[in-house]
Computed example of a mutant assay.
Amino acid sequence: MSMSKLLKEFKEFAVRGNVIDLAVGVIIGGAFGKIVTSLVNDIIMPPIGMLLGNVNFTDLYFSLEPERTMVDGKHISLAQATDAGVAVIAYGQFINIMLNFIIVAFCIFLMVKGINSLHRKKEAPAKAEPTTKECPFCLSTIPVKATRCGHCTSQLVQEEAR
């Protein structure tokens, strides 16, 4: 395959509407993720930590080597433990990330729900064609395609012939 043909195919692929839409979505999603991370870490978690006794959730961890995380009878911070190479389970960070996920998922749910409601409003139900009509002689209801009334046997004039 020649290089010019490869570049032409790549150009066709890259300028398709779906690819550009996806790229815009990824960029906006990345920025939205940073906003949600800041919301959780800087606004939601500090009051929760304060209510729970001034706990910093990002610093909560469970040490797999407890003897290496105690200095003068006090636990060292998560940053100090990881710098020292101690094996830890950082469940506080996991809590923050789970809250980030829940908030992002809820926002996406609301966005999709809003978009779906807009689509439903735009789609007006199609008006169905009538399947029956009234006989002009006896006023009985008969099928639209009837050429003779089934009740009074009158010959009906077709709409196309008029």
Results as ranks from 00 to 15, higher is better:
143 P>T: 04
133 K>D: 01
95 I>A: 12
67 E>K: 05
94 F>C: 08
65 E>R: 04
97 I>Y: 03
76 I>G: 12
99 L>K: 04
36 V>C: 08
93 Q>H: 04
6 L>K: 15
57 F>N: 10
130 P>M: 05
64 L>N: 02
124 A>H: 09
83 D>L: 01
53 G>K: 00
69 T>E: 08
132 T>V: 14
75 H>R: 14
109 F>A: 07
83 D>A: 14
71 V>G: 11
73 G>N: 08
25 G>L: 08
49 G>I: 06
86 V>Y: 05
110 L>S: 11
96 N>Q: 11
158 Q>H: 12
96 N>Y: 02
143 P>A: 08
48 I>L: 13
27 I>F: 11
118 L>A: 15
22 L>S: 11
150 G>C: 01
14 A>V: 05
31 A>G: 01
156 L>E: 11
77 S>M: 04
99 L>P: 12
61 Y>V: 02
45 M>C: 06
151 H>K: 15
69 T>Q: 07
159 E>Q: 12
14 A>F: 15
99 L>A: 14
130 P>F: 08
149 C>N: 11
69 T>S: 15
107 C>Q: 03
50 M>I: 07
58 T>P: 00
60 L>I: 00
101 F>I: 14
145 K>P: 01
89 I>Q: 09
46 P>W: 06
82 T>I: 00
12 E>P: 03
67 E>M: 09
161 A>R: 02
65 E>Y: 05
137 F>V: 13
86 V>L: 00
158 Q>P: 06
